[in-house]
Design a protein around this nucleic acid. Structure first.
Lengths: 270, 270
DNA sequence: CATAACTTCGTACACCGTACCCAGTAAGGG
DNA sequence: CCCTTACTGGGTACGGTGTACGAAGTTATG
């Protein structure tokens, strides 16, 4: 399932498709499909039924074409997933605005508010497209949308006293936090759909083993946590409320803010 | 590729195997294999060749047995992956020590140092077993090792003024950060092995597209970052040095520390 | 109008997880 | 002692996957 870039020679093809560098053919019949249509169909399937249900045959059926026709537009499944990723990343961007304009709008209330908005956007994106977390992203795809998003984030952090390396590290930090937390929360929420086992069945099956543990004194803290209803929240409630996410995000931003406020003098030599 | 718990009825079986609740059979031939041996072989394959190369046939070949023999010990591939996960989580734990003892050792230099150690351990774990990031973890498997790890982490944070929900959120925060960052860094580093394309080939293919962008004034900040050599670090250097990881971890811990120091009075009503 | 470029897509292959089933083995009961 | 019963090992087969190949149809160009 990992992104493998198949043949290797297709890499250039894949990049060309992503960046719109494909020249239109003059001869032959007009293409009945388009990369965009295929990507959209694929995203729809993945959104609704998960990445496991995404197969070339499935997409082709959805579009009413033969399976192999897809390969006239996309070199392979891995490349298609790359394109899906970049398309998803692009959803939050406004194509008519330059990175400068978008960053300016985000910075209106300061860099912290801007970074917060970016993080929330990314969080919402993962809720909308849970399959993003399942794709391997073996190598940064560097499509136009992800590049633009990076530029915007960099501009939001620009001019507040961080050097280039620090700016990038801050972005890695926030992105890492968002995707990591999304992984935990989102996937727990999605499980019920994906699995034939319902949430109740699952926790019921776990219960006897859990109980034996909770009665064991060695796990007293865990028991206290459980009694406080922390897990009831996780297993029962709607995970998309993002309660834990918001909390952690503020801690992360606090940490960044403290670093920024300390200034170059207040920190050790880089 | 997502963990699906196959039939559903096998869930109990899976849990029993994980928790060691299987009673030994009396009749019939002695089993020539064991769950542990299978799990170890599977982890070896996954470590060396990635999760994509992990197939039941491959594991069976590795062990010199027929493919279907594996199903005498493990209900299916998904359950096997669950077992692999818990086995990996257990590597950092000392079976002879109680959670209290391990937590005590971690807290020796304070809760922050303890949390730091836990985070570093998890980070190293992901470097050692990159495939962990590829498995879906649709539902928390709650094997003995992950439970014990949770108990230890909770004990490290216990008694410093956080309520039960806050303690759990802090753990989610740190875990989210570690896994998220690992996802970014580790997978970028692993890519070269997995792919037929070398790093040089990859960046060379990207270059023309990148260049066009970097000359565009709209991506001026990105250009500055690139010129500063930030990406050279990512693409060339050894990703396992964890430079960015350590930096972000300190920010995260700063954020937590600030929250803890503020005390119940210094924070808004929960 | 022949040709070359381009489309669509059926067939085929290697690989996957695993259901089913039968043969072989070892302990318990008579 | 043997027969029954429980168990292990594993071959075969089925329905799925990604995709290589090539045949057949379509269209603009020389």
């Amino acid at each position: 399932m990992s992104t493998e870039y198949s043949g290797g020679g297709d890499l250039t093809f894949s990049l060309k498709v992503m960046w719109g560098g494909r020249e239109k053919p003059t001869r032959g019949p007009k293409p009945g499909l388009s990369v965009e249509r295929i990507v959209q169909a694929a995203i729809q399937v993945a959104d609704a039924e998960g990445l496991a249900a995404l197969s070339m045959r499935r997409i082709a059926t959805e579009l009413g074409v033969g399976t192999m026709s897809l390969y006239r537009y996309v070199p392979g499944k891995n490349e298609l997933v790359d394109l899906m990723l970049d398309a998803a990343y692009g959803e939050d961007l406004e194509p008519d605005k330059t990175p400068e304009q978008e960053a300016e709008a985000l910075r209106e209330k300061g860099w912290r508010a801007g970074l917060e908005k970016i993080a929330r956007g990314a969080w919402a994106l993962h809720l909308r497209h849970p399959w993003i977390l399942q794709v391997s992203q073996a190598r940064p795809v560097l499509g136009p949308s992800s590049i633009k998003g990076l530029e915007i984030a960099l501009r939001v952090l620009d001019g507040i006293g961080l050097d280039e390396f620090e700016m990038m590290k801050m972005i890695t930090l926030v992105d890492g936090y968002v995707t990591g937390t999304a992984r935990i929360i989102v996937e727990a929420g999605r499980a019920a759909q994906q699995t034939g086992v319902s949430d109740e069945q699952f926790w019921q099956a776990q219960e006897p083993f859990m109980m034996r543990l909770l009665d064991d004194g060695r796990f007293a803290t865990l028991r206290r946590i459980a009694d406080a209803g922390v897990f009831a929240d996780v297993s029962g409630g709607d995970p998309s409320d993002g309660d834990g996410f918001e909390f952690g995000l503020q801690r992360v931003l606090d940490g960044i803010e403290a670093y920024v406020n300390a200034g170059p003098g207040g920190r050790g030599a880089s």
